[in-house]
Nucleic acid binder design. Structure first.
Length: 425
RNA sequence: GGAGAGGUGGCUGAGCGGUUGAAAGCGCCGGUCUCGAAAACCGGUUUGGCCGAAAGGUCAACGUGAGUUCAAAUCUCACCCUCUCCGCCA
């Protein structure tokens, strides 16, 4: 959520920066400004009446204590009370309208983010490694997985529908092992404190990180309980300190968490339906940071490096992309995507997205800290995949496939696979 | 799910419907004292909105939301949460 004071004092600048994102959100600015003005006028009026009522009520109390009649004053205050009720009702309505709009306005981009329209305008920042070469035509992961009997797409569909995965045998163990590998890496090498959060989250949590109210149709919802299946661990983990005031010496706080991620992928029908590139449930290890505002961009660079480390240790070729204004997510001020090379697809796949949301989410979730100067401020919230597993799995299968159909995975994974790096004969 | 108890400031814990944004203690910050520290003493110590250049003024908040009243932390109702016991259950 944007600071209403920022919009009030820098209306034109905010309008322009929203226009840069190319979603037409700047159109709401005039309505916000009008509502804000009306809200403040109403509050001023109501507060004056309340001050009057407070002082006269004290007089009434004093009169009654002396056994004198206060009937005239009480009748007058009855009328004032009715006026206050009417004004408070209008304030509540304006507040609600204002809040409803503000919750749908995306974050402003950081000054270092290039202005652009869509993914085609995202600059590539760097590459690591090289595309692997094969003496044969590399197969897509679904062929490899089914031939090895470690992935079973038809049966997953039978159980749940399209877009779900059934891992089997060594394939299931690989998935489990990767989760442990990632958590071990981030907790022992990168300083993150592991958490294991609930997978079902309430509406306030979803509003806090920005999934709601705007993207309701993308979420799985349990209607009877008003709970949602978390689309990413970013939601429960970023909300850990909701409504709290942290001490400045606690910052930065690093958390990482494994959770499955549930996404309806509404509107994505027909895209990447084959295999496990776009699915309704996938595993992910997420990194979340609660940072002092002064250092949040340093923290973002470090977080990207933490995610890159995963791919480096696994020997997977990747590139880092900086998202332009038009391609960034709703809550982010600056986002790097990491895309891993998948030989069977002949394409780069997004396996990580690391964002600094600055105070956009902390303002919604009310996560603050008391700074050295004694002032209470919003923390900066960052989140990044470290990494998404389904696509990492794709890259591993397609990169490390052998001509005989087996897999020869990186040695670093052997401890997580029962001491072997080989899957298949 | 059933029965009972309870939700007040960083913590513990008071609070006859009116001068309580809130006693007291602890903690924390600053000061006096001291070579220094402790102790003692003095002062300060929630958050947000609105008006204002500022000084300051004012409003709101005692789980959440409604209600009664001139006036609600105090009364009424609903909901949420916590604890104890019972039931059920991985």
């Amino acid at each position: 959520m944007l600071d209403i004071k920022l919009i009030r004092d820098n209306t034109d600048a905010v309008r322009k920066r929203l226009a840069d994102r190319g979603r037409g959100d700047e159109a709401a600015i005039d309505r916000i400004a009008a509502l804000d003005q009306r809200r403040r006028a109403l509050i001023t009026d109501a507060d004056k009446l309340k001050a009057l009522r407070n002082s006269v009520s004290k007089e009434i109390g004093a009169l009654k204590a002396q056994g004198q009649d206060a009937g005239v004053k009480m009748a007058a205050m009855k009328k004032v009370g009715d006026d206050i009720t009417a004004l408070d009702k209008q304030i509540a309505e304006v507040d609600e309208q204002l809040r409803a709009i503000l919750l749908t306005i995306p974050n402003l981009s950081h000054s270092t983010v290039p202005t652009g329209k869509d993914a085609a305008d995202n600059p590539e920042i760097r590459r690591w490694g090289q595309k692997p070469e094969f003496a044969f035509k590399p197969k897509p992961h679904w062929e490899i997985g089914e031939a090895l009997d470690i992935l079973d797409f038809p049966r997953a569909t039978k159980i749940s529908g399209s877009g779900f995965i059934l891992y089997k045998g060594a394939g299931a163990r690989l998935e489990r092992g990767l989760i442990n590998f990632l958590l071990d890496l981030h907790t022992t090498q990168h300083g993150y404190v592991e958490v294991f959060p609930p997978f079902l989250v309430n509406r306030n949590a979803m509003i806090g990180t920005g999934q709601l109210p705007k993207f309701e149709e993308d979420m799985y919802r349990l209607r009877d309980d008003d709970l949602y299946l978390a689309p990413t661990a970013e939601v429960p983990v970023s909300n850990i300190y909701r409504e709290e005031i942290l001490r400045h010496d606690q910052l930065p706080i690093y958390h990482c968490a494994y959770t499955p991620c549930f996404r309806r992928e509404a509107g994505a029908a027909g895209k990447e339906t084959r295999g496990m590139i776009r699915v309704h449930q996938f595993d992910k290890v997420e990194m979340v940071k609660f940072s002092h505002p002064d250092t949040s961009y340093d923290e973002l660079e470090k977080m990207v490096a933490n995610a890159e480390k995963v791919l480096q240790l696994l020997g997977l070729h990747y590139r880092v992309i900086l998202l332009c204004t038009g391609d960034m997510g709703f809550a982010s001020a600056k986002t790097y995507d990491i895309e891993v090379w998948a030989p069977g697809q002949n394409a780069y796949l997004e396996v990580s997205s690391c964002s600094n949301c600055e105070d956009f989410q902390s303002r919604r979730a009310n996560v603050r800290f008391k700074d050295k100067d004694g002032k209470t401020k919003f923390v900066h919230l960052l989140n990044g995949s470290g990494t998404a597993l389904a696509r990492l799995y794709v890259a591993l299968l397609e990169t490390y496939q052998q001509s005989d159909g087996s897999l020869l995975l990186p040695e670093i994974l052997a401890p997580y696979l029962g001491g072997t790096r080989k899957i298949g004969k």
